[in-house]
Design a protein around this nucleic acid. Structure first.
Length: 821
RNA sequence: GCCGAAGUGGCGGAAUUGGUAGACGCGCUGGACUCAAAAUCCAGUGAGGCUCAAACCUCGUGCCGGUUCGAGUCCGGCCUUCGGUACCA
């Protein structure tokens, strides 16, 4: 009979749900294991292939662990705030709350149809007041500690999304991560979280977590710590000083000019009146450029002189001060000493504006007098540097820094590329920022007992700049908690990455009302043992969550340093090489496959396609292979229905007592058992499935086995297939006569190590590195005897007779290599 | 430009520490079953050479070189594709 997947999948889903098989007892900390997949963004009503590819295999991993006896917690929830719902509302008039709730209801059903083992009692959604109340609480804790603050700064503005964006949400091409519109620069007063305060710890903590190296590297680069020196330059005719940051103080004698970022106020102060018109014009021009245009390496250098001069502290030299947009106000001090001879950018700038280029580091093997054709940026010998001449530039960095420090003209320092996290958004569908603006008391935090600040249902989404909430007078108008005078609520909402920065803690008890989360459970269950999600979050969610976890630790709410102990990224499934997306209309709909072959087959096929972390291009070509395999499994169990009841169950066989065909099967089932656990454990699902396919090929001879061995084999087969195809696994287990559900009373079998040892070894004989013969010898036969066997082989004789033996190499039980002349 | 990952049959992909390249699956070819087809089952399937056939030989893991008894795997130099980043002083 054809495998009736429809009926069987429904049957087990119902069973699991009714019996609450996947409800985790979180008070049981014995052998506990937290397996988490990044929660779902309910921007549509459907699960697409990417969701299945992400969730199915992760669930299979969790199921393996459950069968192996771990107390596994695998929750699922909804990252329910965010722009898509609001944009949808603008387009259709359907309120974000309505569309989101509808999507969630649909998605929940689909997730259940996948056959996942989520603990539905732990379900959460970030748009619920019970959840976002604690976002607000978190905000206030950060505010109290000076980690949440407001400042006016140049920020990224997306005119289509009508909101500011964090730097992480702007793509490399300068477009909005969400909608693809070119992002503009605007000066706005915005809320920031002071992630930079944790920069060192975020960097150093990377050594302690088991994450993909490339992800850690991305975070390392993103944080971008560099060690250097701050050097003070006097400004001619001013009391003000100018401090530059440099990683190359050894090149100080090569400074021929100094550059200020156009945004810096100092520019106005020092610019000589006859230069003022040009400088102001230049600053205006700079404002028109997007950050990407401005920071593009291919752009030709621009700049204007200010007419002012700075004094080089090491040699008292007078150097012109310029303004140029290649210097960024947001990095270092916003002032740069320019050393054209030893910095590529300065070199190009100096060439263009005919500023002097003075060589102070000599490249080994070059002439002192030779002109440079490009900047020499490496280590060399210091020249033209007064008392430092002749020393290695690396040592010069230390020496000059020390000398400057001694004179109070400089100091060792570090700098980061990381900037503070901009968290306010001028949008409706998010967590209201719990701040009240009072004319007298300025910004006043909402008292904790007044939380949550509820997001009102009414709002004008079709806003044209400014927050939609600003127009809702019922919401905005309030009284100051401090002085009682009429005041206004902050109308911005929080970046949804705030929601996802701590949700893994809330899952442990989404109904907890005494705090953000239950600290006792948090300490027992986090860090999360296994976290699975897309690599695109490397410098966003995955960095924010680490930051917030550390803050929570410092507040005393958790006792660990890191949120996610082990991290795995699923690959991306593309369609004809392109990322699947609604806008491109190239989404593959899983529904048809679920209807035609069932959830188990579809899940297993996604796993079988290739390595989990690589993803790949979508093709349904091979799905029949997995379907055939499932059919064969089903018929094999059908043919042996009730077998486990007909025999005394053994957990070990004496190999010597088995018939030849039984021996092979006994060996294979044990070898597969060993293989499957290791492969699934490492997220190598493709090879795990392949191993089971190999096994079923071997089981063609099953009919010739004793009833005992048949039961032994099928028990193990059912248990092994269960993580990968859970419905099928349960059904097979029941078919052979088991009374209990596999996942209700987990079973995973021990490997009989004796079955893995071989009687004979096939030794490959190579002559001069070429494979020439194979010799079967007893396993672990002494080398001398192997040699005899090898040289008895006709082909070996053919290739060695009459030749001089130079060397022989024997790799036990594997290779016998003979070198002849 | 810089950083990272990957290039293996017609296709998706296997291959502990260097040790029989191509597991497993798709597709294809032939056969069985069938009136026929589908489904299923069995056999074959990297390329080329030689042969009635088998045996056998040569070449083969992006390209060029190297180390080694032996390289898909290690080293050096390239090429291509995909991610990340982009004047960070």
């Amino acid at each position: 009979m054809k495998y009736p997947f429809q009926e069987i999948e429904t049957k087990w889903q119902k069973f699991w749900e009714e019996k609450k098989v996947y409800k985790t007892d979180l008070t049981d900390k014995e052998n506990n294991l937290y397996c988490l997949v990044m929660f779902i963004y309910p921007s549509g009503a459907k699960l697409h292939c990417g969701h299945w590819y992400n969730y199915g295999p992760t669930d299979s991993w969790a199921r393996l662990k459950k069968l192996q006896g771990y107390n596994v917690f695998e929750p699922m929830g909804y990252d329910a705030f965010g722009l898509p719902a609001e944009n949808y509302a603008i387009k259709t008039g359907v309120h974000p709350k309505e569309s989101t709730m509808k999507n969630i209801a649909d998605i929940r059903e689909m997730l259940k149809r996948m056959g996942t083992m989520y603990d539905w009692d732990a379900e959460l959604m970030t748009c619920a007041p019970e959840y976002y109340k604690w976002n607000q609480y978190l905000f206030l804790q950060l505010y109290k500690r000076g980690l949440a603050y407001r400042k006016n700064a140049p920020v990224n503005w997306c005119s289509s999304c009508q909101t500011v964006l964090a730097r992480e949400q702007v793509l490399g091409d300068g477009n909005c991560e969400r909608c693809g519109t070119t992002v503009e620069q605007k000066n706005l007063t915005q809320w920031f979280f002071k992630i930079t305060q944790y920069a060192d710890e975020l960097l150093d903590g990377l050594n302690k977590i088991d994450w993909p190296e490339k992800t850690k590297l991305m975070q390392t680069n993103w944080i971008g710590r560099s060690y250097g020196t701050e050097v003070e330059f006097k400004i001619e005719g001013h009391d003000d000083k100018l401090t530059v940051f440099t990683t190359r103080p050894d090149t100080l004698f090569g400074v021929t000019y100094v550059v200020l970022a156009p945004e810096k106020e100092l520019v106005q102060k020092i610019t000589k009146s006859e230069f003022k018109i040009d400088v102001d014009k230049y600053i205006e021009q700079t404002k028109l450029l997007t950050e990407v245009d401005r920071t593009s390496t291919v752009k030709e250098k621009t700049g204007v002189p200010t007419g002012a001069y700075a004094i080089n502290p090491v040699n008292g030299e007078r150097v012109p001060i310029w303004v140029a947009d290649y210097v960024l106000a947001t990095y270092g001090t916003g002032y740069v000493m320019a050393v054209p001879a030893h910095d590529e950018r300065d070199f190009l700038f100096a060439k263009k504006f005919e500023l002097p280029i003075r060589k102070v580091i000599l490249q080994e093997g070059t002439d002192v007098k030779a002109d440079l054709t490009e900047a020499f940026t490496e280590v060399g010998t210091m020249i033209n540097s007064g008392k430092y001449d002749g020393i290695n530039s690396d040592d010069g960095i230390e020496k000059i820094t020390e000398d400057l420090a001694a004179q109070g003209l400089g100091r060792k320092t570090k700098n980061y590329r990381l900037r503070d996290w901009l968290i306010s958004r001028q949008r409706y569908w998010g967590t209201p920022i719990p701040i009240i603006h009072c004319e007298h008391c300025r910004e006043v935090p909402v008292p904790e007992e007044q939380l949550p600040v509820l997001l009102p249902y009414e709002a004008n989404f079709k806003s044209d700049g400014g927050s939609p909430l600003a127009g809702n007078t019922n919401f905005v108008n309030t009284t100051c908690p401090k002085c009682g005078a009429p005041a206004k609520r902050d109308a911005d909402t929080m970046d949804t990455f705030v929601d996802s920065s701590w949700y893994y803690l809330r899952f442990l008890n989404p109904n907890f009302s005494e705090g953000m989360f239950d600290t006792k459970l948090g300490n027992a269950w986090t860090p999360v043992d296994m976290y699975v999600g897309g690599a695109e979050h490397a410098t966003m969610h995955l960095l924010y969550a680490r930051f917030i976890h550390k803050v929570l630790r410092d507040i005393g709410l958790v006792n660990s340093d890191e949120p996610f102990k082990k991290l795995i990224h699923q690959g991306t499934i593309t369609n004809n090489g392109a990322k699947m997306s609604k806008s491109k209309g190239n989404i593959v709909n899983p529904d048809d496959f679920i209807v035609n072959v069932g959830a188990d087959v579809f899940r297993m096929y996604l796993m079988f396609m290739g390595p989990y972390e690589l993803g790949g291009d979508w093709s349904d070509k091979g799905i029949v292979g997995v379907d055939r395999f499932v059919q064969r499994v089903y018929s094999m169990f059908e043919a042996n229905a009730g077998i486990a009841k007909q025999a005394v169950l053994k957990d070990k066989f004496e190999i010597a007592e088995l018939a030849e065909i039984e021996k092979n099967i006994y060996r294979k089932i044990n070898a597969t058992l060993a293989k499957v656990s290791v492969e699934i454990d490492h997220f190598r699902f493709n090879t795990a499935v392949a191993a089971l396919m190999e096994l079923i090929n071997e089981l063609k001879g099953l009919d010739e086995c004793s009833t005992e061995l048949k039961s032994y084999t099928l028990e193990r087969f059912a248990s092994m297939i269960a993580p990968l195809a859970p419905h099928l696994g349960e059904e097979c287990w029941q078919m052979i006569g088991k009374e209990n559900s596999l996942f209700e009373q987990p079973v995973w079998f021990e490997v009989d190590q004796l079955a893995l040892t071989k009687e004979n070894a096939l030794v490959v004989v190579q002559i001069n590195g070429k494979m020439r013969a194979k010799v079967e010898v007893p396993y672990n036969l002494p080398e001398a005897e192997v040699k005899v066997a090898v040289f008895e082989d006709e082909k070996v004789k053919l290739y060695t007779d009459g030749k001089q033996l130079v060397k022989e190499i024997y790799v036990p039980n594997k290779i016998y290599n003979i070198v002849v002349k």
